[in-house]
Write a protein that binds this DNA or RNA. Structure first.
Length: 395
DNA sequence: TCTGGGGTCCTAGGACCC
DNA sequence: TCTGGGGTCCTAGGACCC
């Protein structure tokens, strides 16, 4: 029997949003397609390979994509249908093995060691998976297989589009070392610049550089991590995980928000959307975070951890207003607002069922009392004091 | 051509506690 | 009188991913 040394399989859907659009609109087949925000400040979310040949890539401003690809078909994103396609894809992955770790809507790691009795080789698993995805979902996908987790991801990347690549156990370094270091999972723009300044261009260069030099530039944690990856070492396992850790919504406005009235209305809309998302997920969260991006792109966040988790739109709105005050928005225009919740708990958790008024309700009532007694001028400082949950407020 | 939306993880400092 | 030290939580920012 084959030893199944190569037990990590990474599956990645090709140009996922574009291919889902093509399923319902065949006229998009064989022509350059760009899915992305069509507004003034839109960017490319997904580009077909025909468009990529012309230089279009994801995260590119939509205006530049139009210049590079004037004859392309530009399609606004429909996240609902991508989510449905994603759920079908993941159901299919799990029909092979429950050992599935989701990385995003369109990619996953599978530990296929449990399939050794059903398939002759790891390669046969990859071929079967790709065939099932193509036949059942009508979508192209690429698969990488390796004995080392992150190597399987680089293998699927090298196999794109619509391909399969297995890296034999023991051959990892030969595969990795010629590659640009930027392709390593975790080396982004900033780390790449730091590595470049050390004369590191390829993964092989990275493997050759003494770790203490790396530590000085990148810190001990990242340096050790990258040294291991460059040596083809990665002890991480496939971790199925238990769902999202935070839920957030944000929006970039076509025109900067200027008046406090505009800002308030926009924030209220976001809070309502967030409450809807939480409700559908059956979740509530302990920590609320407000995100503000100004017209100069400077971005700031303000957050507060509450004693009781929140989920209701009205509670999120009340707390968001407090955070907005704390963000000290001056005369600057605002291009983006966001609200999110982390420290998630099930909305059906016991504290939600209690008949006691939540401390949030108590706080809101206190604000109301202060407002009535002392007038509107007192409201801002009063709410700032009352909403600080650790300053011994009476229950 | 000015830079989306949804996430995860890490760092660092201060508060607080023993 | 010259400042312990370790653990944990919270906040803000930043890098990175798709």
């Amino acid at each position: 029997m084959h030893r199944f040394d190569e037990r990590f399989l990474h599956v990645d859907m090709d140009a996922f949003f574009v291919e889902v659009e093509r399923l319902r609109n065949p006229r998009l087949i064989d022509v350059p397609v760009i899915v992305g925000g069509l507004g003034r400040r839109g960017v490319v979310a997904s580009a077909s390979y025909e468009a990529r040949e012309l230089g279009v890539h994801s995260a590119m401003p939509i205006g530049e994509a139009r210049r590079l690809c004037p004859n392309g078909r530009f399609v606004p994103p429909d996240h609902g249908s991508y989510l449905k396609a994603s759920e079908r894809a993941f159901a299919l992955f799990r029909s092979f093995t429950p050992q599935v770790e989701s990385l995003s809507v369109d990619e996953a790691f599978l530990d296929i060691s449990g399939l050794r009795l059903h398939y002759a080789t790891p390669l046969a698993v990859g071929e079967a998976l790709r065939a099932e995805i193509r036949n059942r979902l009508g979508l192209p996908a690429s698969v990488g297989i390796a004995a080392v987790k992150f190597v399987s991801k680089l293998a699927s990347d090298s196999a794109k589009p619509n391909g399969l690549l297995l890296i034999d156990a023991g051959k990892e370094r030969a595969f990795l070392h010629p590659m640009p270091v930027r392709r390593l999972w975790g080396v982004g723009e900033a780390t790449h610049a730091a590595l470049e300044s050390l004369g590191v261009a390829t993964i092989g260069d990275l493997a050759a550089i003494p770790e203490d030099i790396l530590v000085k530039r990148l810190g001990p944690s990242l340096a050790a991590h990258l040294s291991h990856l460059a040596a083809g070492e990665d002890l991480r396992e496939v971790e199925p995980g238990e769902g999202a850790k935070s839920i957030s919504v944000e929006h970039t406005y076509d025109n900067d928000l200027q008046s406090s009235d505009e800002v308030a209305r926009a924030l209220l809309r976001l809070c309502t959307r967030l409450a809807g998302r939480l409700h559908r997920a059956g979740k509530a969260g302990h920590t609320l975070t407000l995100k503000v991006r100004y017209d100069d792109f400077a971005t700031t966040t303000r957050s507060e951890t509450l004693r009781e988790p929140i989920a209701a739109g009205s509670a999120i709105w009340d707390e968001s207003k407090v955070l907005l005050e704390r963000a000290q928005i001056g005369r600057r225009g605002i291009r983006l607002l966001g609200v999110g919740v982390s420290g998630l708990v099930d909305a059906a958790a016991p504290q939600q069922l209690t008949l006691e008024p939540s401390s949030r309700t108590v706080a809101a009532e206190t604000v109301e009392k202060v407002r009535k007694r002392f007038g509107d001028d007192s409201v801002l400082p009063a709410s700032l004091i009352v909403d600080r949950p650790h300053k011994g407020r009476g229950e």
